[in-house]
Amino acid sequence: MRLDKYICQATSLTRSQAKKVISQGRVTNGTNTIRNTTYKVTTNETIFLNDKALSIRGPRYIMLNKPQGYICSTVDEQLPSVLNLLDVEKRKQLFIAGRLDADTTGLTLITDDGQWSHQITSPRKKCAKRYRVILADELTEDASIQFQQGIQLKSENQPCLPASLINISNTEVLLTISEGKYHQVKRMFAALGNHVTALHREKIGEIELDPTLQLGEWRYLTDIEVQSIA
């Protein structure tokens, strides 16, 4: 890894700040001062900044209970990014593995591990996601069968993949899908002439939202949770 990138990942310095401390002669490998920003840091090498040993932490895996009014974007737009809810360093290196609409709440996974995120977001992986859905109207008796057969969305050439629908009450259901089409859950129920009034994601793959997390709260995933995404 390039020295300037290594320093950025091991500290809170920006790339330009890292280059500056290197040029100032404040970086060594314990033996020699290194002034070349493109110097390749080897696996077994220890880099020192101001005589303090640096190290790069492993990838981060975060579970957030997303509240309404935040967007699953890495930057603020018309609404604030969910990353503002995280009290962590180097938030700009994080990204969201599976987005939610601004008015949708629930399980949001955030990481800086691109390969791990790909296992969740790639359509080929068909990672299952479970939602708790509140509806404006009662569902018809054959709704579950229609979801199993695949709902045809407006402006889509192919129907959705089979989905699992479990009735909690006349207007509350648990829906499990294995795709991530634009506004998919809302569009699926709209195709049946219904309207989603509240939407909450509870599960992604084998990872379930921690019931102790209040809206806006987060925690790091356990090793078992991380490894469940393969």
Rank of each mutant, 00 (worst) to 15 (best):
N157C: 05
T197C: 06
K154A: 13
S144W: 00
L161Q: 14
K203P: 04
V185P: 03
S178A: 14
R201Q: 01
N167S: 14
N194I: 03
L192S: 06
I204W: 06
L165I: 10
V173H: 03
N167R: 11
I151K: 08
T140K: 12
G193K: 07
I134D: 04
I145M: 07
L135P: 06
L139N: 06
N170H: 12
L153Y: 07
Q148R: 14
S155H: 15
R201L: 02
V185I: 14
A143H: 06
N157S: 15
L139A: 10
R187D: 10
K181E: 10
A198T: 07
R187I: 09
H195V: 09
G180L: 09
L153K: 11
R132A: 06
K203H: 13
Q146N: 05
E156Q: 15
R201A: 01
L174A: 03
F147G: 09
H200W: 03
G193D: 00
V185A: 08
V196Q: 10
Q148I: 01
R187Q: 14
Q158M: 12
L165Y: 08
T197W: 01
E156N: 08
E172F: 02
L135I: 11
N194Q: 12
L175T: 00
H200V: 05
Q184T: 09
V133D: 06
E156L: 11
A143W: 05
L175Y: 01
Q146T: 01
S155E: 15
V196M: 12
D137R: 12
M188D: 12
I166N: 13
M188K: 11
Q148A: 14
I166V: 15
L139F: 04
Q158E: 15
A198G: 11
A136F: 01
Y182S: 09
N167W: 02
K181C: 11
A190I: 01
N167G: 03
V185Q: 10
V133S: 08
Q148V: 00
G193H: 03
E141H: 10
T176S: 15
H183V: 11
E138P: 00
V185F: 00
Q146Y: 01
K186Y: 04
D142A: 11
H200P: 03
N167T: 03
G150N: 10
L199M: 07
G193P: 02
